[in-house]
Amino acid sequence: MSLSGKVALVTGATSGIGRATAELLAERGARVLVSGRDGQRGAEAVRGIRAAGGEAEFVPAALSGAADARALARRAEELAGPLDILVNNAAIAVFGATAAIAEDDFDACHALNVKVPFFLVGAVAPGMAERGGGVIVNVSTMVAGFGTAGSAVYASSKAALELLTKSWAAEYGPRGVRVNAVAPGPTRTEGTTAQYGTQRLEALGAQAPARRVAEAREIAAAIGFLAGPEGAFVHGAILPVDGGRTAV
């Protein structure tokens, strides 16, 4: 129970990688605040964690900007006390030819994927620093590190998040706050299966040395490593969890 006594907030935690992460952190002893838009799925995630012996509460949040991020941080700390772990997982993916992307879609993607984590960290990290410790893990993507046609909007938002990860490590690391990121490859979730279809998703996974698609739990395990004491000397890292895709 390496996270016993810790309070963790996971955004986008009602499904996919976020839910798997919330479950894993709870298994390791953390009190987990499950954040998301869908109250029914949030309740299901909390019930599952509690049924397994963990501690969790649902904190509803529709995140689109600074005010939403600050309100979430405030509600989370009112409910459970100061946060020890923040996992910035909530995101949307916008794909398509550059000339065909609508401005509203561009703005929505960068608002949730960049602006919300920026202001959520701004609301949470200073308190962590004052207390002398805390962990922030950002969820990026492998395509933040190389060019792919049709991914310009989504990839650029995650590339910004990776640079923010390093900037925050420099800013808050000297005061005991570790900030890192994971960069997943193709991962089997409800969202990716709906977006790509099983066949295309498997084809994407086959391009990596691992020759398969990741399970959400495998990405959560990497997040758990960075969030726990095992990752105590890791600061400002972008950990690829992509089956080796970016290595070839």
Rank of each mutant, 00 (worst) to 15 (best):
S4P: 07
S4Y: 08
K6P: 02
V7P: 10
L9Q: 02
V10N: 07
G12A: 06
A20Y: 11
A20P: 05
A22K: 09
A22S: 10
E23Q: 15
E23R: 15
L25P: 10
L25I: 06
A26T: 08
A26V: 11
E27K: 15
R28I: 01
G29Q: 13
R31M: 13
V32M: 05
R37Y: 06
R37K: 03
R37Q: 10
R37P: 00
G39Y: 00
Q40F: 00
G42L: 08
A45L: 09
G48N: 08
G48V: 06
A51P: 08
G53E: 06
G54I: 04
F58R: 01
L63R: 06
L63C: 03
G65R: 07
A67H: 02
A71V: 04
A73R: 00
A73D: 02
R75M: 03
A76G: 12
E77D: 01
E78M: 00
I85V: 12
L86V: 11
V87A: 05
N88E: 08
N88L: 05
N89H: 09
A90W: 06
I92H: 00
T98V: 15
T98C: 09
A99F: 11
A99S: 12
A100D: 15
I101P: 10
D105L: 09
A111N: 04
L112P: 04
V116A: 03
F118T: 01
L120Q: 07
V121Q: 04
V121T: 11
A123T: 10
V124G: 07
A125R: 07
G127N: 10
G127L: 14
M128I: 07
M128D: 09
R131V: 06
G133Y: 14
G133W: 15
G133D: 15
V137S: 01
V139E: 01
T141G: 00
T141E: 04
M142G: 06
A149N: 01
S151E: 14
S151I: 00
V153H: 03
L163P: 06
L163W: 14
T165A: 01
S167R: 09
S167W: 03
W168E: 10
W168Y: 15
E171K: 13
E171W: 15
G173Q: 00
G173T: 02
P174C: 11
P174I: 11
V177G: 04
V179Q: 07
N180D: 08
N180L: 04
A183K: 10
P184T: 08
P186E: 03
T187P: 03
E190R: 05
G191P: 02
T192F: 05
A194T: 08
A194S: 11
G197A: 08
T198D: 15
L204Q: 11
A208S: 15
A210D: 02
R212T: 15
A214L: 06
A214N: 06
E215V: 02
E218H: 07
E218G: 05
E218W: 10
E218F: 09
I223H: 10
G224K: 07
F225Y: 15
L226Y: 02
G228H: 01
G228L: 05
P229L: 03
P229N: 09
E230M: 13
V234T: 01
H235G: 04
V241I: 13
D242Y: 14
T246H: 15
